[in-house]
Amino acid sequence: MSPRFLLLLFVMAGLVVAFAPLPVQSVTPQERTIDIDARQYTYSPSELQVNKGDTVTIKLISTDVVHGLYVDGYDVSIEANPGQTATLTFTADKAGSFRFRCNVTCGAMHPFMIGKLTVGTNNWLYRSIGLATLAIFGTVISIKQKA
């Protein structure tokens, strides 16, 4: 096999892995209620995973000072006083990973009080794993051919 043909083959395979449309999984949207504990300077849990279309209700329980929660990309926020559970409900209609952060100044490390909301499956993770495997494979073959 000529090296050119092999290169073309690998590039084609790479493009397929990166851009091939996946069969759309039909997940019935559900209602999710998530309790989040907020304290200086962390959320627990700080990583949320929901499916696209889900109705997400976040109950924010603050355990020391006044904290907030603002979801980037969705532009929704709440503020929780200790002792008063704050509730935020929104529909996760945008897929992707979104940062959520505290939007009430809560002390010196306030800017680092962040968490992540993932909506839908993380396709790019699997695609990049596939691409990396292809690249390794390709390198091995080309080295063997030269030898």
Binding site: I61, S62, T63, D64, N81, P82, G83, Q84, T85
Partner: peptide
């Protein structure tokens, strides 16, 4: 109660507030 007591006595009065 919510503003002044619940942080210690709990939102449902059970003495299990966040503090």
């Amino acid at each position: 109660y919510a503003q002044n007591c619940a942080a210690c006595h709990g939102e449902n009065g059970a003495g299990d507030g966040v503090f």
